[in-house]
Amino acid sequence: MMGTHAEITEVWPRDGRIRVVGHIVGDPVDTGPVPWRLLLTLREHEEHQLSYDSPLGEGRRFDVAVPIGDLVWEGMSDSVKWDLHLATETGARLRVGRRLDGIHGKKEIMVFPAQQVTSGGVDISVKPFYTVKDNLSVKCRPLALEAQGHAA
């Protein structure tokens, strides 16, 4: 069951942003004239969403960036995960992942660096990662105060 999905070719976690580049593959999706957006949903709290314009280029290509500061909030005390989709207001929703390159077990192979952002005086590590199903998510993890003490 492959269906239609948003296939990643590049992920760039640098300069305070996470940029994701790829293209939609599979059957055409009839969405009408509404624009595509990158949708991030907070795992287990789907009502929390972030959304960014992501117009499609030639070959249904997308190239969209998320400022990492948007993914954290003051008083954040536990790790959270955001799941990435390409979506339209008319209900199309495609998971963003990398499934067509024949590499299995990306979680351990395609590993990205963490960036850090400070919110309410707490350093938070923000790191994109592939799930066991080779989809892209982002983990935000407050760094322990104790560890910050050591780093200082």
């Binding site: 760039w12 976690p13 640098r14 192979i109 590993v111 990205f112």
Partner: peptide, 18 residues
């Protein structure tokens, strides 16, 4: 080696496959 890949921003091109 992973650190070297990250330092050179090669995480989209170079993979330690195990």
């Amino acid at each position: 080696l992973r650190a070297l890949i990250e330092e050179h921003h090669l995480y989209n091109n170079v993979f330690l496959m195990g």
